Amino acid sequence: MTTTLPQGDLKLLGTDLAQRMLASTELARLAYVARDGTPRVLPMLFHRTGEEVVMATFAGTAKLAALRARPAVAITIDRAGPPPEVLLVRGNAVVTEVDGVLPEYAAAQRRYYGPEQGEAAVADADRPGVRMARIAVRPEWVGTFDFQERFPGGGTAEDFARRGR
Rank of each mutant, 00 (worst) to 15 (best):
L12H: 03
F151K: 08
V142P: 01
P71S: 03
V54P: 03
R131D: 06
V53D: 08
G60V: 01
E52Y: 11
E97S: 01
R165H: 10
E140R: 10
P83M: 06
E119L: 08
M132Q: 15
M132C: 14
V130W: 12
R162Y: 08
D99A: 02
A56T: 13
G143S: 08
F145W: 11
R111F: 11
A31G: 15
R90K: 13
T15D: 02
D78K: 02
R48K: 10
A93N: 05
V94T: 15
D124G: 14
A121G: 07
G118H: 14
D159R: 08
E26R: 12
A107S: 10
P139T: 04
A108C: 08
E149N: 13
A120V: 07
V86P: 00
D126R: 10
Y32T: 02
E116F: 07
Q148R: 14
E51T: 15
A31P: 08
E119P: 08
G91H: 02
T15A: 05
Y112C: 05
R20N: 09
H47V: 05
G14A: 14
T57H: 05
V137K: 10
V130Y: 11
T4L: 11
V33P: 10
A65Y: 05
G114D: 12
V98N: 00
T57C: 09
R40I: 07
P71A: 01
V41P: 07
V53L: 15
L13D: 14
T76P: 01
A59K: 11
E85F: 04
K63I: 06
L12Y: 04
A69V: 03
T96N: 00
D9L: 05
E158C: 06
G37F: 06
G118R: 13
R165E: 04
L87D: 03
R127K: 13
P103I: 02
A23K: 15
E104D: 09
E52K: 14
R111K: 13
G91S: 00
P71V: 01
P83G: 06
R163W: 14
L42S: 12
V95D: 03
L30S: 05
L87P: 02
R150E: 11
Y105R: 09
G91T: 00
A106Q: 07
A65Q: 09
A18L: 07
L13R: 11
R131K: 14
P83S: 09
E51S: 15
T2G: 00
A136W: 08
G100H: 03
A65W: 02
V54Q: 12
P39D: 07
E51C: 09
R79M: 14
R134V: 09
T156Y: 05
R110S: 07
I135Y: 02
D146A: 06
A65G: 10
P43D: 06
A93F: 03
T3S: 10
T144Q: 02
L64R: 01
D9R: 05
D36W: 04
